[in-house]
Structures are given as C-alpha cells and as structure tokens.
Amino acid sequence: MKALVAKFFAQLGVWGWTVLVLIPFFFIMLFATKDTSDIYGKPLALIFKPNWGNFSGAWNAGPDEGTIGVWFINTGLLVTTALIVSLVVAVPAAYFTIFLSLKQNRAVMITVLSGTVVPTILLVIPYFKAYNQFGLLNKPIVTGVAYGVLAIPTTFLLMNRFFLDFPREVLEAGLLDGLSNSKIFRKLVLPLSVGQIVSVGILTLIWAWGDSQIAIVLLQSQSAQPISVGMLSFAADFTTNLGATFAGLSMAAIPPVILYIILSKYVTKGIALGGITK
C-alpha cells in the first residue's frame, strides 16, 4: 500500500514536471499562429482564426528582409567553426595523451581542467580589446574560434577518458599489422570513436548555439549576430506585435529541439558518459 502511494506520487511528480517542461513550447507554437489581439484577449483559446502572417512578419523583422535567416546562417558559421576547432585540436591530443605516464596524464588533465573554472566575464573585455585591435569584430567565424577554444577543455577531458578505456588489443593488433602510429589513430581509433565524438560535439553545439555573453560583445552589428543575440533586439522591436515575436521565438526554438529529437540517442549518451564540464 505504502509502495503504491509512493509510486503514485512519483508518477504525479514526473508528469507534473513533464507538463511544466512542455508548456512554454506549446504556448510559443500556439501564439506564433495567433493574432496579437487574440493573444491579449483569449490567450488560452484553442480554436481561433490562425494568423500565418506572423511568420512573414518575423521573417521581415529587422533592417532587411530575412534577418532571422541571416542570424541562422551566422549561428551556423559560428557553431561549425567552434566544433571544428575544438574537435581538430582536442581529439588527437586527447588520444595521444593516454600514452603518457599516469602522472603526466593527470597533470595534463588538471591543467586543462582549470580552464573550465575561468568566469566568462573575465574573458569578455580582453577578447573585445584584442578582436577590436586586429579588426576581427563582427565576424561570426572568428568569434566561433573563441567558442571552439573555450570548448577544448571539455572535449579534451571527455575524449581522453574515452580513449583511456579504449581496448588496447585493437591498438596492438594494428601495430602488429605494420600500421604506423598515426595510421592506427586515423584508420582504427577514429572510426571506432565516431559515436563518442558526436556526443561530445553535441555538447559544444548546444552551448555555442545558446550563449550570448561573448557574442553580444564580439558581434555587435546586426548582420553579424547569431540568433541568441539577434533575438534580444528582435523582441524589443516587436513588443506591439506579440504574434510576430512568438513566431520568431518558435523559429529559434523549434529547429534545435527537432534536431535534438533526431540525435537524442547521442546526446543522452554523451551526457551520461560524463558530460559535465561545460
């Protein structure tokens, strides 16, 4: 009986949380198709005359038509650069570090780890000065490099842990087959690590996609901003047109959620494997 009660409350709790999680997405999509006067007048009504014009309104927001589209492209450039930088630099290093002595491996890990505690505001102003000095402001790709470097510690730590557990028999076999060490890495290790690399990469992607603290400073021109920063001015421009604001919010929020549902296997795995460093 007692167990049943506990079970009931557990069930109630998880359902309650699920509803709380889904409510905003539901309303963002609902309001995206509602007329502004309906959002104010009958926000909860499920039967209403849809106003698809909200989406074209949102698309045409900002200085030029399709500014939201530009923001997506910028986000894409920024995130892709961040991924390439973090993976290309950190993955090989994480692999070869496993051959160092245990002590050395530890020392490397701790040094890299300390990089994750540095507060972002400590970095923002110097970044800004340096980027400005070299004329690199308002360039999403170059800003992506900064995001990529900041993702290196996490990528390194997670990949290093994965490689440490990598079956050594495979490496030995490769060596006996006469493969060089770099070939062993490229031909044997990498193909077997794709799943883990995707998982770790997704963590970087989520972070770089959402962060605005660095981008708000390094990408100030509206045509150079990613969606995370662009949305801020977007909301300010559209306060009298709530429908369009929500259409914009849905354009920003729904694609990553869909992408996540497709890749959820990797994400959950990546996190459960130990994805808790930024």
């Binding site: 800004f128 402001l137 308002n138 400073v217 100030q220 801020l232």
Partner: peptide, 14 residues
C-alpha cells in the same frame, strides 16, 4: 543598423 542597447555603449568600439 544598430540597436538602442548598442548605440549608447558597445558601439564605441565599433
């Protein structure tokens, strides 16, 4: 085009 937020501060560096 720049935003109201940018015009009074961050725009200096631009």
């Amino acid at each position: 085009p720049i935003t109201n937020e940018a015009k009074g501060g961050p725009n200096l560096q631009v």
